[in-house]
Amino acid sequence: MKRIRNMTQLKRIGITNVREVDKEDLCTAIQNMSLLHYLSVMMIDEDEYLRMDALSSTPPRYLKVLILVGKLEKVPCWFHSLPNLSTLLLRWSRLTEDPIPYIQALPNLGRLHLCNAYEGGGQLRFSEGFHKLGILRLWNFPQLNKIIIERG
């Protein structure tokens, strides 16, 4: 196996057992991985917050797959800066704000998996449609009563 001498050369990484207190180190490390294509981050406990807000507004620009497993206070502000993202999985996020307006702005998203990702109102609203979405998987939404699809 080839040894990676420089973390910026990494293209695929999965990080597990992350704690809230690791947020600064985690975000700094991710920002330094400029060639990253696949990122998976999993919290140690479903009740700890995954604090990704310390990541600057310019996450790795080649990122194609993003998996976030942990509670989020809000949708990360840098979501709109992921033009190459084709797969997004949010699990245990339990957001109180509807994440769909942020997610549907991703131009190349083809796969979206949301598990217990939203605890806000009783509905999810798809207003703009997804240009390339081929797979949409929603499960474990105990508060969800309605899904509204306006266009697309």
Rank of each mutant, 00 (worst) to 15 (best):
Met42Asn: 12
Tyr62Met: 09
Leu90Arg: 04
Leu89Lys: 14
Ile44Met: 09
Ile44Thr: 12
Thr87Asn: 11
Gln104Arg: 06
Pro76Glu: 01
Gly110His: 06
Arg91Ala: 15
Asn32Cys: 10
Thr87Met: 12
Leu35Glu: 10
Val18Cys: 06
Leu82Asn: 01
Val69Gln: 11
Lys64Ile: 00
Ser56Val: 02
Thr28Gln: 13
Met42Tyr: 10
Glu46Phe: 04
Ala54Arg: 11
Leu39Asp: 08
Tyr38Asp: 14
Met43Ala: 09
Leu66Trp: 05
Ile30Cys: 06
Asp25Ile: 01
Met33Asp: 00
Ile67Gln: 12
Phe130His: 06
Ile44Trp: 09
Gln31Ser: 14
Cys27Ile: 04
Leu26Cys: 03
Pro101Thr: 03
Asn84Ala: 08
Met43His: 07
Tyr49Cys: 09
Asn32Lys: 14
Asp47Ala: 07
Ser81His: 10
Pro83Gln: 02
Tyr38His: 14
Asp47Tyr: 09
Lys71Glu: 08
Glu119Ile: 08
Ser57Val: 02
Gly70Asp: 04
Pro107Thr: 01
Leu26Ser: 06
Leu50Pro: 06
Arg19Glu: 13
Gly110Phe: 01
Gly121Tyr: 00
Glu73Thr: 06
Leu35Trp: 00
Arg61Glu: 12
Val65Tyr: 11
Arg94His: 06
Pro99Arg: 03
Arg51Thr: 07
Tyr62Ser: 11
Cys27Pro: 09
Leu114Gly: 07
Leu39Thr: 04
Leu109Ala: 04
Leu95Asp: 03
Leu89Ile: 11
Asp25Pro: 00
Leu26Met: 08
Thr96Trp: 07
Glu24Pro: 00
Asn32His: 11
Arg94Ser: 09
Val21Asp: 15
Leu114Phe: 10
His113Lys: 12
Asn17Arg: 12
Asn108Met: 08
Ala29Asp: 02
Pro76Gln: 01
Gly122Tyr: 05
Ile30Arg: 02
Met52Ile: 09
Arg19Ser: 10
Leu106Cys: 03
Arg51Trp: 06
Ile44His: 13
Gly122Asp: 15
Leu68Ala: 05
Glu128Asn: 13
Asp22Pro: 03
Ser57Leu: 14
Asp25Asn: 12
Pro83Ala: 05
Glu119Val: 04
Thr87Leu: 09
Ile44Asn: 14
Lys64Trp: 00
Phe130Cys: 04
Phe79Lys: 02
Leu66Gly: 07
Asp25Cys: 07
Thr28Leu: 10
Glu97Met: 08
Tyr49Thr: 14
Asp98Ala: 03
Asn108Tyr: 01
Leu112Thr: 11
Ala105Asp: 11
Leu39His: 08
Val75Ile: 15
Leu106Thr: 04
Lys71Asp: 05
Asn17Trp: 04
Trp78Gln: 00
Glu97Ser: 13
Gly121Lys: 13
Lys23Leu: 06
Ser34Arg: 11
Tyr38Asn: 11
Glu24His: 09
Asp25Ala: 13
Lys74Tyr: 12
Ile100Thr: 06
Glu24Gln: 12
Lys23Trp: 07
Glu46Pro: 08
Leu68Ile: 06
Leu95Ser: 07
Ala54Tyr: 12
Leu68Val: 07
Glu46Thr: 10
Thr87Arg: 13
Ser86Val: 03
Leu112Glu: 09
Asn108Ile: 00
Leu109Tyr: 02
Asn84Thr: 00
